[in-house]
Design a binder for these strands. Structure first.
Length: 482
RNA sequence: GCCGCUAUCGUCUAAUGGUCAGGACGUAAGGUUUUCAUCCUUAAAAUCGGGGUUCGAUUCCCCGUAGCGGUACCA
């Protein structure tokens, strides 16, 4: 089993490509196969420098690594199509010799005009095969005169071509619908349609996964394999991923690049778990899957063939879930880049690393993306907390009531020693006081929490007080009573 | 226009020629002795339409419809 991931180097990894890569990787790895990276850079107008390195790096971050590729080597190289021109030339010449393909000298302008006319007449805008009937001498003369040409594939004029998709079964195409499409461009570069077939064959790829946008050219590809007398690999066409409106997921709406998700603080585990469920499902009902689970359970045949809508809320759910699974040390490490700014705001309240740990621990369960940690924990770091006084007010109380309540709490808190300034002791002491005096919990704890955090929503008052320390806590509560 | 692919709760999906059509996200309600979150419980929520085949069809077939894709010297 050999599978390949064959992206064009556009500079970022599309979330849809990630899913394709994941399927390919799992297909290979679930059967102890080989996973190959091949770069499809035959459209040189689209070159982006550094794209390959970026691609390899982001996939590695996700956990997907290649056995062969431009960066990893292997016996089937080169793995970059622009470096394989000679190979394509050889095979194109072979086909030329056998008359399976032909030179076409039609100028792009002519083609454009021809297509416009055919479209106007409600005919399919296919190439009209003008050059297909050129004689050998005509061709030679034109070449001698230096006319630019492309090489086109000769499609059968009648009959049908049946192709087999692993997931959909047989698909039948009428040969007369097939265009004599371009195999070699006038700059000598192959098109996707040619390079792909040559490479998959010469690299001994056994299973091809590609987007379903390729189904239309599928019969032409199969015909090419037949022209060479090659056995085609198994093909599985993967459905597209749609946006919430049912349209194509595009760069312009943002959030198609895996890099962007990484930046925002999504975990590889979450991205992976979310992606695999777009079009595949394990036999049992549990949807939480580790990479190892996926490798063990994945079967190509179980891929679904209807398009899936990208639901970012479910992604967020997975992300939150995996954040909660992290050990505190790991999470602190992961949050570090998003916490740096906050740290600049404060004096050394305690040893900073310890403080950071405690802060992150308190927010772990409400974190959906790592990037939220900064905003969520700002209040811990602020030396002069600002908030609307009315926020202190619980239900039917007045501002004055609240201040009175806080003063009462203050008198109790002052008596707790530094050593005892722990959330359990704080809670026990205050709850005892409230119970004995028959006071309502919310009337006291809400204002206390707001005095400490300045937030409508936050972790509880006792845990925040512990992390803040006695001095800072008292300072904040005192300030609220002014 | 032509060609092709697809069609189960809002979304991702499970299942079967006979099930109360199951799960997850989201939503709503309740609980977990203060907010938010977590966690738990409960609820609402689906087989695109029409014809067949069949004792019985969501499942198999046909026809519509809709969505998407292709229709390039882009991939």
């Amino acid at each position: 089993m050999r599978t390949r991931f064959a992206p064009s180097p556009t500079g970022y990894l599309h979330i849809g490509s990630l899913r394709t890569a994941l399927f390919e990787y799992l297909a290979a790895k679930s059967l102890n196969g080989t996973f190959v990276l091949r770069i499809e850079d035959t459209d040189q107008k689209r070159e982006v420098p550094g794209a390959i390195e970026n691609l390899v790096e982001i996939l590695k971050w996700i956990g997907i690594e290649f056995d062969e590729g431009p960066h990893a080597g292997g016996n089937y190289g080169p793995y970059i199509q622009s470096q394989r021109k000679k190979i394509y030339k050889k095979y194109a010449d072979e086909l030329l010799g056998r008359g399976e393909v032909y030179h076409c000298f039609c100028a792009p302008e002519r083609l454009e005009k021809m297509r416009a006319e055919r479209t106007a007449k409600k005919l399919p805008p296919r190439y009209d095969r003008t050059c297909r009937s050129l004689s050998k001498t005509e061709v030679e003369e034109k070449i001698k005169r230096g006319e630019r040409y492309v090489i086109r594939q000769k499609m059968p004029l009648e009959g049908e071509t049946t192709v087999r998709d692993l997931l959909r079964g047989d698909i039948v195409f009428k040969n007369e619908e097939l265009e004599d499409h371009v195999l070699i461009k006038s700059d000598g570069m192959p098109t996707y349609q040619f390079a792909n077939v040559i490479d998959d064959h010469t690299m001994e790829i056994t299973h091809v996964f590609r987007g379903e946008e390729w189904i239309s050219s599928f019969p032409k590809n199969i015909l090419l394999y037949r022209s060479f007398g090659w056995t085609p690999p198994v093909f599985a066409h993967i459905p597209l991923i749609l946006n919430k409106e049912g349209g194509k997921l595009s760069k312009r709406q943002g959030d198609v690049a895996v890099e962007d998700y990484k930046e925002k603080g999504y975990l590889p585990e979450a991205l992976l778990n979310f992606c695999i469920l777009l079009g595949w499902h394990p036999k049992e009902e549990n949807e939480i899957l580790s990479f190892e689970d996926m490798k063990a359970k994945f079967k190509i045949e179980d891929i679904r063939i209807s398009p899936a809508v990208f639901d970012s809320e479910k992604l967020d759910y997975f992300n939150g879930y995996y954040i909660r699974q992290k050990s505190l040390d790991e999470l602190v490490e992961l949050c570090w880049p998003y916490l740096k700014e906050n740290l600049k705001m404060t004096e050394n309240r305690k040893k900073k690393t310890e403080f950071l740990r405690e802060v992150v621990a308190l927010e772990q369960e409400r974190l959906k993306k790592l990037s939220e940690i900064g905003e969520l924990t700002k209040f811990f770091f602020e030396d002069d907390l600002q908030y609307d006084q009315n926020l202190l007010v619980w239900k039917k109380l007045t501002v004055d009531d609240v201040k009175e309540n806080l003063k009462k709490l203050l008198s109790i808190l002052e008596n707790i020693s530094e050593k005892d300034w722990k959330k359990e002791i704080l809670e026990k002491t205050i709850m005892e006081f409230l119970n004995v005096s028959g006071l309502k919990v919310g009337d006291y704890l809400w204002p206390m929490r707001v005095a400490l955090t300045g937030q409508k929503a936050s972790p509880g008052p006792f845990e925040v007080a512990e992390v803040l320390g006695k001095e800072e806590s008292l300072k904040r509560i005192e300030k609220a009573t002014d």
